[in-house]
Write a protein that binds this DNA or RNA. Structure first.
Length: 414
RNA sequence: GUGGCUGUAGCUCAGUUGGUUAGAGCAUCGGCUUGUGGUGCCGAGGGUCGGGGGUUCAAAUCCCCUCAGCCACCCCA
């Protein structure tokens, strides 16, 4: 029995689900295109190092969520848990330093070994946007603007707010980190067990904690804002100003910290309260340190990823399907003719439904069920006169149409 | 990974303190209706009661294990 059900956290995307997801993905691709992004797609799996070295040894994704296995050649392989690292690798593999700035859009499945919940799966899908090679805040502004535009286009903008923060440059972060650790060490006794671990590995993340004791401590904690150097300060101000200029509302959240280690400067999250405890629908940030960490030349980058399933859930019933024209033959001779008519109409670009069996009543029912916009009825009477009866499925009006005029007559149902 | 709730037909759910052949609505299929769909009437098919083990004369119902979904945590898309 167990093998007849999909692996935990994976799902079959039946037509209705897939249609909703396609709608999200295609909308994202179309919007990104307007901003000059071009679609590309990195492999679904990479050498484990690609993710291990970039995501950082302290991130949960690396420590407990990767689908990693040895292939038959003995290489350690990992199913991508996100797009950014793979795209950065592709950038270097293909020598795209020459083509900077590079703006990529990508979409596809990603894999994370987590405990599933609604809106949280082991195989899920993301759409992703990256700008590589632009050190200035224009890139941050543009990247966030595409995200906001996408959410608007999907009709979910009202249920989402943009939280934004800066992590500063390396220098600012280091100074701050020392101050923060000092403060936290002094309040160790109030911190949760989880946070004590974080104190060692990634103290910034304690800001994320929902534990009450942690929150009390963090409410008084020194904020990174106060330790930003001039460069970082100006950078963030420029981003905020730019977003205001293009009409994107921001909500500065000094406690917003992203889980991945390679971020610097801008970090942001579009969050919603409509998906239970899965708040983030579209999130990302700047990762100027990434390429160097991977062993390449330093190269700035910024991007985001959005969860397709989460967005699809928010969108609800998506794009209606194309309504077909149904062919309804009555009797064997008509069935042959019906095939021919269906074929020519299909070649002509019509969506045509042709049932495989049944009397006229059955076939009309079927036409109704597939939501046909019109039915082309073809029986002995019609054959004798070389015509078809075309029934408008909404009004019920019927018209006798010479077969030679059929394509023309159906044009209004395209 | 931690804690909790749930699991009966394709879907939504009944099923009394354990007690014969486990029910309903919707959906499906057939008929009323061999040239007319959406409403109507009649009928049929469809269930290892998530799976395994145990208690009992008897288990959908009680116990244990397991799987999955959901909720919270963790983390994030």
């Amino acid at each position: 029995m167990a093998y007849l059900q999909p692996v935990r956290g994976t799902h079959d995307l039946l037509p209705d689900d897939l249609r909703a997801q396609r709608f999200v993905q295609d909308t994202a691709a179309a919007i990104a295109l307007r901003y000059g992004f071009e679609e590309m797609t990195p492999p679904v799996f990479e050498f484990t190092d690609v993710f291990q070295r970039t995501l950082g040894d302290t991130s949960d994704i690396v420590t407990k969520e990767m689908y990693t296995f040895d292939d038959r050649g003995g290489d350690s392989i990992t199913l991508r848990p996100e797009f950014t690292a793979g795209i950065a690798r592709a950038f270097m593999s293909n020598g795209l330093q020459q083509s900077v700035p590079v703006k990529f859009f990508a979409r596809g499945p990603v894999f994370r070994y987590e405990r599933p919940q609604k809106g949280r799966l082991r195989q899920f899908h993301q759409v992703d946007v990256e700008i590589l090679g632009v050190p200035g805040p224009q890139a941050d502004i543009e990247v966030i603007a595409v995200g906001a535009h996408l959410l608007l286009e999907l009709g979910v903008a009202d249920d989402v707010t943009l939280e934004i923060n800066t992590l500063g440059d390396t220098e600012s972060r280091q100074t701050y980190r020392e101050t923060l650790v000092e403060y936290l060490t002094a309040h160790k006794s109030k911190l949760s067990e989880d946070s004590l671990k974080r104190l060692e590995k990634n103290p910034l993340r304690i800001f994320d904690s929902k534990n009450e004791g942690d929150r009390e401590v963090m409410a008084e904690a020194p904020l990174l804002q106060e330790y930003l150097n001039d460069h970082s300060r100006t950078f963030f101000d420029d981003v905020l100003q730019g977003l205001a200029d293009v009409g994107v509302e921001t909500n500065i959240n000094p406690q917003l910290v992203r889980g991945l280690d390679y971020y610097s400067h801008t970090a942001f999250e579009f969050v919603t309260t409509t998906l239970g405890s899965q708040g983030a629908v579209l999130a990302g940030g700047r990762y100027d340190g990434l390429m160097e960490q991977m062993g390449g030349r330093a190269m700035p980058g910024i991007g985001w990823a959005a969860g397709v399933e989460r967005l699809a859930m928010m969108v609800g019933d998506a794009a209606p399907t194309k309504r077909p024209v149904a062919i309804v033959p009555v009797g064997a001779p008509a069935a042959r003719e019906a095939m021919k008519i269906a074929q020519t109409l299909r070649e002509d670009g019509y969506h045509v439904d042709l049932g495989y069996s049944g009397n006229m009543g059955k076939r009309m029912k079927r036409a109704d069920k597939v939501n046909a916009i019109a039915s082309v009825i073809l029986g002995d009477d019609e054959l004798a006169k070389n015509v078809a009866t075309v029934r408008d499925m909404l009004s019920g009006e019927q018209a006798e149409v010479p077969l030679s005029d059929l394509r023309e007559h159906l044009a209004k149902y395209r």
